[in-house]
Amino acid sequence: MNPLLSAEQAVLGAVLLDPDQLSHLDWLAPDHFYRPVHKALFGALRKLRNDGHPALSADGPLPLSWLTDAVDEAGLYVRGLTAVYAHTLIQECPRTEHAPVYGRMVLEGAIHRTIAQHAIRLHQAARADAVQGEVEGALRTADVLDGVLTDLARSWGTDPRPVAPTGAPTAASAVPPPVHTDQVAEDERFLLAVLTEQPGAMDEVAAWLRPGDFADPAHGRLYRCLSALHHRGEPIDRITLLWEAQRRGLLADGTLSSEQLTAICDGMVPGSADWFGRRVMRSTLTRTAAASARAVRALAEDEALGPGRLINHALHALGLLAEVRTRWAIANGGPTPKLKTSVPSAGDPHPARVRAARARSTPHSAASPPTPSSPAPAPAAARPPSRGHP
């Protein structure tokens, strides 16, 4: 039995049996249903309610026209829907008064699907940008995903805030080194050569380029050596770089050989460190966008995650991209972008709608016993039995 399918059938069956349940489901939309036939039928039921169907004001038993008219209206948008299936939906509803809870289950499934779909789009946009040497498509799609997460959080009734899942990877290990193209590797070698041979070249990239931006881990460790020399104010050339690489164990652990370092330095071409650095940054931005998309999709496909945790974990996964995006803006001299995931909106839903979306009923408080006017003990029949006595 599919829990989500059962929830969709149950909420529709509840509304078919009791149209008044629609007043408790104003926060539920037809698009929240997964099956097209359920989506069309729920939209038809809401339309009949909004049009003032006679069944809503009828006295006595619910007229059969409520069911048949809903089936006819939904049949304008989908095929194969019959009154027989509508009766099946009614049979699948255990209790009509539980409709808000069934609707919450439908909304939860819709949140998982929506996040997964937008994560797939982000991954596709990042891969396309990587091939075309651009970043605009990935950045726009990431903005859309960020806005969708914020809207879903408010629909669910929670505050959108990034929260790291248990055992979340660090920023350095969250982006696995993908299969990089020869062009990316060549850009990294040229950049390292320029940084080594051109005096003052590190000043152009030190503020925004990081070792983790290199697709080749060996290139990243070599750039770390250059950054260390630059930070200490020591001169940079092929000899000092070779010495720093030896001190950091790059020659001993086989990461790099002196011949490989010499080949990188000899491969310098006329160019700007800033220009090559921005090419490396562009590559890491698309890689990070793809990695964030994969992480968000994996979260969305985890059915054990509640919507609140899913949304906040997904926002945390997007934070890795936000950090790279900030440095990309610095490298290009533009304004620093800021995500608006935690900024409240003036159009927040009414608290009553939030409570309905959560479908968490408020228990009635038990009536307080009357205060006795005298210290006389209560009758024996009203006194609860003491523990340990018959």
Rank of each mutant, 00 (worst) to 15 (best):
residue 286 T to G: 07
residue 271 G to L: 13
residue 93 C to W: 01
residue 54 P to R: 15
residue 85 Y to G: 03
residue 43 G to S: 05
residue 295 A to Y: 03
residue 223 Y to A: 02
residue 196 T to Q: 08
residue 97 E to W: 08
residue 11 V to C: 00
residue 204 E to C: 05
residue 332 N to V: 03
residue 148 V to I: 13
residue 76 L to A: 14
residue 247 R to I: 05
residue 219 H to I: 08
residue 274 D to R: 15
residue 157 G to I: 09
residue 366 A to M: 12
residue 165 P to E: 13
residue 375 P to S: 09
residue 118 H to K: 05
residue 81 L to C: 10
residue 364 H to V: 13
residue 364 H to T: 08
residue 346 A to D: 12
residue 290 A to E: 08
residue 361 S to T: 15
residue 64 L to P: 00
residue 7 A to T: 03
residue 243 W to K: 12
residue 192 L to N: 01
residue 369 P to R: 15
residue 22 L to V: 01
residue 26 D to F: 02
residue 202 M to W: 00
residue 189 R to M: 12
residue 282 R to T: 00
residue 149 L to F: 07
residue 367 A to K: 14
residue 38 H to K: 04
residue 175 V to I: 15
residue 250 L to E: 01
residue 51 D to F: 03
residue 347 G to W: 13
residue 312 N to L: 03
residue 309 R to N: 08
residue 285 L to Y: 01
residue 305 L to C: 09
residue 267 G to M: 12
residue 267 G to D: 14
residue 378 A to I: 08
residue 268 M to D: 09
residue 2 N to K: 11
residue 362 T to L: 15
residue 64 L to D: 13
residue 19 P to Q: 07
residue 169 P to F: 09
residue 57 S to F: 04
residue 386 S to P: 04
residue 214 F to Y: 06
residue 316 H to R: 10
residue 372 P to Y: 06
residue 230 H to I: 06
residue 114 T to F: 04
residue 96 T to Q: 06
residue 253 D to W: 02
residue 309 R to F: 01
residue 347 G to A: 13
residue 297 R to Q: 13
residue 29 A to K: 01
residue 389 H to L: 10
residue 310 L to E: 08
residue 9 Q to C: 06
residue 220 G to V: 11
residue 75 G to A: 11
residue 100 P to T: 09
residue 361 S to P: 13
residue 130 A to K: 05
residue 388 G to F: 11
residue 195 L to V: 05
residue 240 T to P: 01
residue 48 L to G: 01
residue 302 D to W: 06
residue 320 L to A: 14
residue 373 S to I: 10
residue 351 P to L: 08
residue 167 G to N: 14
residue 125 A to H: 02
residue 372 P to F: 04
residue 7 A to W: 00
residue 68 T to E: 13
residue 111 I to Q: 00
residue 199 P to L: 03
residue 261 L to R: 00
residue 358 R to K: 15
residue 34 Y to G: 02
